[in-house]
Write a protein that binds this DNA or RNA. Structure first.
Lengths: 339, 339
DNA sequence: AATTAAAATGCAATCGATTGTATTTTTGTT
DNA sequence: AACAAAAATACAATCGATTGCATTTTAATT
């Protein structure tokens, strides 16, 4: 039986019109308190629950925001999602989470599905494969507000909430230089992602400032999984490339490198110092503990959601998106402190 | 302008009826291929997208499943969510994620909201505060299929996907006994959660099997955060309670204990051996690496979702829920291996 | 008491797709 | 060519809430 009570049932039971019931339930000033009380009591009695589907259809909203991340289980993303969910929930919005799994095709189909679902807004951290942005045209065409977080695109119309990757890369590298390192390798990620471009740029800038020459062969690009870090480190050692430090663009690859070095009994930080990026929880547990750049997913998620909710409630998408930069800080730990 | 084309626009443009358009778009056999082609072409031309809201209202489905977890960013839950999302996505369902943040009140209000949203099914891992289940009556009343995962309730009507906590607790403890430990403490979690009751029961059973006496004062109950583990360990040491091992009901508390012991320069595992539970990624990074019980969130998430999807598609909720038990295994690492 | 303004409620269309039934068109048979 | 059967399409109600406009009721004023 699908006999969930509707406003019509309430109306009939009270001998009044369903429009009045609707208004009463929405606490409209057009209904007397007396009638409201009667209606509320009857709603309670019948166990009425608003049919959100019908309401949403009529009002053409969903109070739902779509979130696309590469992978939920990555710590950074799950903390960002935590921040997103908390902020959205407080504002009365639900969150639909989808994973691109780093695949462009999946990302495209997800965007399509979410637009079809009529989400009120979108938060996206793009996949490593995302080189073209045609799938976002649909979002623009439907005037759905969109905010990038962390992994953003360089499209002027959209807003982004990101961290200062350049500064992070710069500080990480400068820190190594101050420890006396002169030959600093860099593990970088896919070049279509701005974050990795910027971390690399920060690295280069720090070298330049301290008059160290940039050496192309010191930069190894990979997908920055733990295994990649391990393999990268192995390549550097096997090829006998003379380095005394590594700045890895994320923690996982740094951990991989540390594991390889420990196996080879190469001293960290004495022989090779390591700095990561992101402050994953694992970075405090590994030995030596990993120096890294703190990047609060929670803060990024909250900020991005607040920005998006603003656009949604104002019902206007700005001509020119703005970029909010969340500050980062260097956490000095044992993998790089030489004194 | 809200001029998204509807089936009526397509119908008008072709001089046919919108019901035919609807059937064509749903690939009904009641429409000729010729007409279908015309309609599909026109839909393409107008940039038509189905209004899922209207469709859902009419069909009284949402193709959405609601997921409630205590906290997204906990690694176990984020992997479970990853499994849930992947399975749901493959079946054409979206996933709304909500966090109880371990608060009963929040859990209640979330359940309410999701029922109101007319989710097709629910996956829940209950909060530490959840002692009464009245809020689930609404779910039953609305005949919404519900599957618990990991943190389940002992309500016979519902299905659960859980791991064999008893066996895990038993194996963890027996492993310590086989290493020669005779005074094994246990860090337990809130007693309203079946998982902690069962892990404790496994612990007791192993003691009994090996003729070790169970000592009430060896069991410390807390919320099992890292800080709790640290504090628990401190209490044991400060009180001079003579123990040679700890079985912690989760990894985080075990890590806290390790950190305290390392500070006190107490040797692990020689003086005190440690076993955790869950195989968090951090457990391989800590030194000594943590012996633990492997518990695949991904598998649990996938299994629970498949079970739920079955109930949803069969449109029947079984009288008696079933319990699926996912196997666990002991991962012997350095925090407990004495030889 | 009559009049009018204001407040409360009712009416009916609407959001867009779906679907049971009715009608029209096509196809096949003699 | 006539007719029945089958196939294709059209009609209209429906899902449940919302909302502009119309009508009724109440309150205020003279």
């Amino acid at each position: 039986m699908n006999n969930k009570p509707t406003i019509h049932d309430i109306a009939k039971a009270l001998g009044i019109n369903s429009s009045t019931v609707s208004r009463a339930l929405n606490d409209s000033p057009r209904v007397t308190q007396k009638t409201k009380n009667k209606i509320l009591a009857m709603a309670q009695e019948l166990g009425y629950q608003r049919n959100v589907l019908a309401s949403n259809l009529r009002k053409n909203v969903t109070h739902t925001i779509g979130v696309i991340v590469p992978r939920i289980s990555r710590h950074f993303f799950s903390s960002a999602i935590q921040g997103i969910e908390e902020t959205a929930y407080a504002a009365g919005y639900n969150v639909i989470i989808c994973q691109s799994l780093e695949q462009l095709e999946r990302e495209q189909s997800i965007v399509n599905g979410l637009v079809e679902k009529r989400v009120d807004g979108l938060l996206i951290s793009i996949s490593m494969e995302t080189l073209n942005y045609d799938h976002l045209d649909l979002v623009a065409k439907n005037k759905i507000p969109l905010v990038f977080f962390d992994r953003h695109c360089n499209i002027p119309n959209y807003s982004s909430v990101i961290i200062d990757d350049f500064k992070g890369g710069f500080e990480a590298t400068e820190h190594l230089i101050k420890q006396g390192c002169k030959h600093i390798a860099h593990f970088s990620g896919p070049k279509n992602l701005e974050i990795y471009k910027n971390r690399l740029a920060g690295y280069k800038a720090a070298l330049k400032k301290h008059k160290l020459t940039f050496n192309e062969s010191y930069v190894i690009t990979s997908r920055l999984m733990e295994d990649d870090g391990y393999a990268n480190m192995k390549v550097l050692i096997d090829k006998n490339i003379e380095i005394d430090a590594v700045f890895s663009a994320n923690d996982m690859a740094a951990i991989g490198a540390i594991k390889f070095l420990k196996q080879q009994k190469i001293a960290i930080p004495e022989d090779i110092a390591i700095v990561g990026f992101s402050n994953e929880p694992i970075s405090t547990a590994i030995e030596p503990s990993l120096t890294t750049i703190d990047q609060s997913g929670l803060t990024i998620g909250k900020t991005a959601t607040n920005l998006l909710l603003n656009y949604i409630e104002e019902k206007s998408i700005p001509e020119k998106g703005k970029t909010v930069i969340i500050d980062t800080s260097l956490l000095e730990r044992n993998s790089s402190k030489k004194e």
